[in-house]
Each structure stands twice: as C-alpha cells, then as structure tokens.
C-alpha cells in the first residue's frame, strides 16, 4: 500500500531501528573493537592489537572451550532430537492420558533452567535418589557433578531432559501435516509399522528434523544457566563452555578485552551454524503448501 505520508514508514520503524541499533548492532561492533584492547573495567583500555586472540589460541583455552562446547552440543542435540522424535511418534494418539503425558514432557521446556538445574543437583547429589537407586540395584555410583569425567555428561543429560519436549512438539506439529490417507494406503499395501515410519513418516518429517537439529544446536551452543547453577564451570574447567568462559573473563577475571575476543569468535561460530541451518533446511526439501509459521 501507499503510505499516507512519504515519511510515515520510516517514523513507524524508527523505535524498532533505534532499539536494534543500541542493543544489538552497536554492542556487536563494540565487542569487536574491545577485542583489540586490554581492559579491566577500572583503568582505561589499552590497545594490544591481536594479543587477546593470540593468547586464547596459544594457551589452548580456545580449543578446549570449543571442543567442550561442541561435545556437549552434539550429545544434547542428538539425544534430545531422537528422543523427541520417538516420543512424538509414540505419543501422537488421541485421549486425555496421552495429552497429559505430552504436556508433562513439554512442561520441562517451559520451566526455568534454574529450577531444573537445582532439582537435578539434588537428584544427582551423592545422597540423592539417583545414587540411592543405583546402590539399591548393586551398581557402583560416583559424584556425577564432582568428577571431571562425568560432569559435562551429567549437564548434557539434564539439558536433554529439559529440551526433549521442544523437539517432541516440533515433530508432533510435523506429524499433523502428514495426511492420514498416506498411512492407510501404506498399511493396505501391507507395510508394517517400521516400514511405514521409514518410508512414509520419516521422509515427510525431514524438514522438521532439520529445523529441530539446527535450532537446538544453536541453543545448546549458548548454554549458560545450567552451568552457572550446577558446576560453575568446574571441576577443573571440565564444564567451562563458551558463554560461561566469556562470563568468567568479565566478572571473575575482569578481562573485558579477552572476553570480547571470545565473543567475536563465538559470534563467528553462531554465524557458521546459521549458514549450516539454512543449508540443512533447504536440503530438508521443503514441501509445497508448508505452513508459513
């Protein structure tokens, strides 16, 4: 439509543009600039060129943080995605019982990370029910969050518990789009449940799968709350993932420059993951008549 006044579209967009500039774009540029400085928030920033990047790469901190973050994300994305798919297929049935159980699984996604983290700390405590159950079964137990070998895996498991409901909901929405006639036709042709899943359901769920995988990858890459509450990055830095490392540099070590260099690298990876997402969504072959949103 023609705007009533030539300037009105710009005026209507102005507040949004101002907020986006002040709180998204300028901070991004500031982070990029700060990454070339040494700054402890108390004394004026000092230009150090690429030194922050050199230290991060040279000390192995960057590689270690990246590998831990990727490992955590890989576990979370794979497990929550496949569990979510299995639950969506298993729970896609009418009736109040199924609706209630679907709601229960999804509720974990709605509840605060703080609540989930505290709850699982208690469950995984040395005196907690999980260890008690293992002992009751005659199995060995350990300090799940206190041992560098298991802490990151424990955090990943808790995260899987929390976000599986998200994957399930996306897959359920995908399942609703599959015409029932396709299943009935396949059943008439004598296809069993597995073959119906393999040849009817899964191909049509591929776009949903690509969407779930990439969005939860980007989300798990940004994990922070669960770490801050459950392990504070320890023991021996085994759970120091990207965002927690940035947080620690600023608020524990007062190294804004180092943190900013981490931010720039982190943002680079997020862009990379987004490119991957766009590619995966395209390769997931969007069907015609897909709901816009």
């Amino acid at each position: 439509m023609k705007p009533r006044h030539p300037s009105s579209p710009y005026l209507l967009l102005l507040p949004t543009a101002a907020f986006l500039a002040v709180f998204f774009l300028v901070p991004l540029l500031l982070a990029a600039r700060n990454s070339f400085y040494a700054w402890d928030l108390l004394t004026p920033p000092r230009y150090v060129g690429l030194r922050n990047y050199e230290v991060l790469a040279g000390s192995g901190e960057l590689m270690g943080t990246l590998l831990r973050t990727l490992g955590y994300s890989a576990v979370v994305v794979t497990l929550s995605g496949s569990l979510g798919l299995a639950l969506a297929v298993a729970l896609d049935r009418p009736g109040p019982v199924y609706a209630f159980v679907r709601g229960a699984v999804f509720s974990a996604y709605v509840v605060s990370w703080v609540a989930v983290a505290l709850l699982w700390m208690w469950i995984l405590d040395a005196d907690g029910v999980f260890s008690a159950a293992l002992r009751g079964l005659g199995l060995p137990t350990m300090s799940w969050l206190g041992d560098p070998r298991s802490a990151l895996l424990a955090l990943a498991a808790v995260s899987v518990w929390k976000i599986t409901g998200y994957a399930m909901v996306i897959f359920l929405a995908g399942l609703q789009d599959i015409p029932r006639a396709l299943h009935e036709a396949a059943a008439l042709d004598g296809a069993g449940p597995w073959r119906r899943f393999r040849h009817v359901t899964w191909p049509l769920l591929r776009p949903s799968a690509a969407f779930v995988a990439t969005t939860s990858l980007i989300l798990s890459f940004q994990a922070f709350d669960v770490i801050r509450v459950m392990t504070q990055g320890g023991p021996v830095r085994s759970t120091t993932l990207f965002v927690y490392a940035i947080y620690e540099h600023v608020f524990v070590n007062l190294r804004v420059g180092r943190a900013s260099a981490m931010i720039v690298i982190f943002f680079g990876f997020l862009l990379l993951l987004t490119v991957l997402q766009l590619w995966a969504l395209r390769a997931g072959a969007p069907r015609e008549g897909r709901r816009p949103s």
């Binding site: 949004t16 986006l20 901070p27 991004l28 982070a31 700060n34 900013s260 931010i263 862009l271």
Partner: peptide, 24 residues
C-alpha cells in the same frame, strides 16, 4: 533492507551483546 536488518538481529543473542551492553 529494513526487513533483512530485523531478521539479522535474530542471529545476535544476549550472550553476544551482554558485555558491551553491561559497560554501556
């Protein structure tokens, strides 16, 4: 261009902006 600008801000989470916003 304005639409692309809005969409591109989806790529910038709080975890990226918090340090500069905090100092600002």
């Amino acid at each position: 261009a304005a639409f692309v600008l809005v969409l591109s801000c989806l790529l910038i989470p709080a975890q990226v902006t918090f340090v500069p916003v905090f100092t600002m």
